[in-house]
Design a binder for these strands. Structure first.
Lengths: 232, 232
DNA sequence: GTCTATATGTTGATAGAC
DNA sequence: GTCTATCAACATATAGAC
């Protein structure tokens, strides 16, 4: 956010500053995602970034602020893209209610693509936002609420139009289920025994079909104890 | 596992030993669940258990072994109950294939009830097994694979009989989605904005309906880009 | 079995030179 | 802006008294 001098004397210093700051953010993103916040020492980050502890504290002020910056850098554009996808789908529908599939796709695809490009770039095994979604640190929870709150509200509106006979509470709960699926997959924890046999390019479609069908399904109280029924 | 002397001289020592060990396990369970493994110092555990660090290392050997014991104490009976529920449902069905609902209920209900009794007992905000399911620590992952692997395999068999036209890979992936939903809810992270408006006693039914419908749904490739379709 | 005391290393953050 | 050097606090684990 601060402007660098353009003169030739300070040019190298200016470039180096940007580089150090970004190297720190990159290293923090990778290590926090791999080992969690408490499991990662500030020194491990600075070592990976080939910088000193002081440089990190100069740029960010504290370890917690570094996490905040690294998380925000990925999460903010991600949620912006989610809203853009939903808006453009609504524009294309010209006032007609969207498919449940189209709505959940608008929410899931941005994170899914972020995961794919991350897999290609480095050897990180999961997106930082998904990995830290369940981190016990308090700052993560508050940042999560602040950034996801409005987005979820916007998607619940769209879902309410697609499924007008369902209560807001039901839809909100179903959307929490969807988030559970997403976090599990994007964080890389969903690589169970035979689940990896599904080719990567079909994964998003499966997630969309699963969650859309789940959202559409009404709750069947009492279905829990029966062993025989109309459906298989 | 070790037998205590029954004589009156060592009776108090024997009882105290058991108490200390259990107090340590209780405190470790609560704190590890709240703050994660790396975020919890052994001292914080022993302080909460009103014991010394040495007592913890005497009984368990290390902080990591304490986590292992605390996690195993809850996870082992939980997974045993899951298998029992599935077996008794299959017995009651007398050879007929089970409902998808009955299968996912057998998997979900034990964890759900553990969460409920935990909510009643103490102020812990989530089951340790669910909270630590995503913990980056390596031991958690290996214990998870060791304990969940056979259980998941057994449930996939039952699902294969209920949905014979689906590939094993598809079912395994769908079951991973189900686990994502479960971990999200049981760990207490699924308490979003309006989702808490659902009464507690309906939560399990909603989870079952959502995941069963998701498992039944086939993937619709290309459903991701369309904005209008036959369904709403 | 449980304690106090201690050994040994690491942590996050800062001071001050350049 | 970036470094080296240093701080006080805290970590895990152990030794030895009782």
């Amino acid at each position: 956010m601060s402007f660098q001098p353009v003169g030739s004397a300070a040019a190298r210093a200016g470039r180096a500053q940007q580089d150090t700051k970004n190297r720190l953010l990159d290293a923090a993103e990778r290590l926090f995602a791999e080992r969690g916040f408490e499991g990662t020492s500030l020194r491990a980050v600075t070592r990976a970034a080939e910088a000193s502890v002081s440089a990190a504290n100069y740029h960010f002020g504290s370890k917690e602020a570094l996490l905040h910056a690294a998380l925000l850098r990925r999460l903010e554009p991600l949620n912006r893209r989610r809203l853009e996808c939903l808006a453009s789908a609504e524009d294309a529908a010209r006032g007609a209610p969207l498919t449940v599939e189209a709505i959940v796709a608008a929410f899931l695809r941005p994170g899914f693509e972020a995961r794919r490009s991350l897999q290609a770039d480095q050897a990180s095994d999961g997106h930082i936002a998904a990995r830290l979604y369940t981190d016990p640190h308090g700052m993560v929870a508050s940042l999560k609420a602040e950034l996801f709150g409005p987005v979820i509200g916007r998607f619940l509106e769209a879902l309410g139009r697609a499924l007008p006979d369902r209560s807001l509470a039901e839809l909100a709960l179903g959307f929490q289920f969807l988030i559970g699926v997403m976090v599990h997959v994007i964080s890389g924890h969903g690589g169970g025994p035979a689940a990896t046999a599904i080719p990567e390019h079909q994964l998003l479609d499966h997630m969309i079909s699963f969650t859309a069908a789940g959202l559409r399904a009404a709750s069947h109280p009492g279905s829990t104890a029966e062993t025989a029924g109309g459906r298989r």
